[in-house]
Amino acid sequence: MKTENGFEEIGKKTTLKVTEGFFEGISIDTLLKAKQRDQKRRKTLILWRTIAVAATLSGLFFLGYYRSENLNSEIKHIVQEDVSGLKSPGLQPETLASSHLVAESTITVAAKKFRLETPVAELSTVLSEMTNDELIQMAEIYKNDLFLGESPQ
């Protein structure tokens, strides 16, 4: 030992003891433990990744569902508002429903209002995100509505 400490007489002697053969088996034992821990960690990692993917997919599904539901109810609301605005005391609902002109004008007004309230870019984004089924469903709303659709009456 260097003389900088003044402990030369002590040297590196120690009173600590270790059992004989302790160092022989420890390498294999540690390797097995390390591999075991590695496998366990990998399994946990796979589980968490699966959970994360599932959570992301369900999140996207619910977001899409929520947006399409909102859009449908918004359109319905606008159409109903405009139809009630077009009603006059002298006209019966049957008369209004049979009139193509009224239906067309209602749709035009509704579309105008919708266009005013929704920016064009956003509307086109919404429409482009909608599936064919959703678009058909939206068209059905217009068709089947008592005041808008082409009723036989």
Partner: peptide, 24 residues
């Protein structure tokens, strides 16, 4: 490790933990 923690059992555990981290 042993000189720091004194106990043989603790030293053994810490030694294994050290090499498990080396492996990882």
């Amino acid at each position: 490790i042993r000189r720091l923690v004194i106990s043989h059992v603790d030293a053994q555990d810490i030694l294994q933990e050290t090499f498990i981290n080396v492996y990882r």
